[in-house]
């Protein structure tokens, strides 16, 4: 576990990142997946004139785990983090899901062999006459 932390970057954050965030960062909030978000306390050269923002993933580092409201904050689309200014959730929105491609839960279209292989009738199929 500890060795993984040292030699891989995809399990949580690397030590370098943790160090920088600990030095410069200020804790902002946490999303539904448990990832933590930080913002720099100062603006340095090379920061493009804005405070750097970081995420430390809980578990596997997977950018698509970042939900929309935190994604917007992380990319400086929103000034305020969702903890301060939560996004309005509309009726048609579904729960955020990470990218499931390559996993067991990946989307399979209807008719896919991994979903039973039963294809629906093709669009070109005809309407048969039925006696009343």
């Amino acid at each position: 576990m500890f060795i993984k932390r040292i030699f891989t970057w995809w399990n949580g954050a690397t030590f370098g990142a943790l160090l920088t965030i600990a030095q410069r960062g200020r804790y902002v909030g946490e999303d539904d997946f448990g990832s933590k978000y930080y913002e720099a306390k100062t603006i340095r050269d090379g920061d493009a004139g804005r405070r750097r923002r970081w995420v430390i993933y809980k578990g596997y580092a997977e950018p698509s785990k970042v939900p929309a409201e935190w994604h917007g904050w992380l990319h400086h689309t929103f000034v305020e983090p969702p903890t301060v200014a939560p996004l309005k959730v509309r009726a048609f929105e579904t729960e955020h899901l990470p990218n499931l491609t390559g996993t067991r839960f990946a989307w399979r279209p209807r008719g896919s062999l991994t979903r039973g292989g039963h294809r629906p009738a093709a669009t070109g199929d005809y309407e048969a006459w039925k006696p009343e």
């Binding site: 070109g124 199929d125 005809y126 309407e127 048969a128 006459w129 006696p131």
Partner: peptide, 11 residues
Amino acid sequence: GLMRQRLDRPY
């Protein structure tokens, strides 16, 4: 019309 009301089996 070629796709609708088709006789596709004997009755």
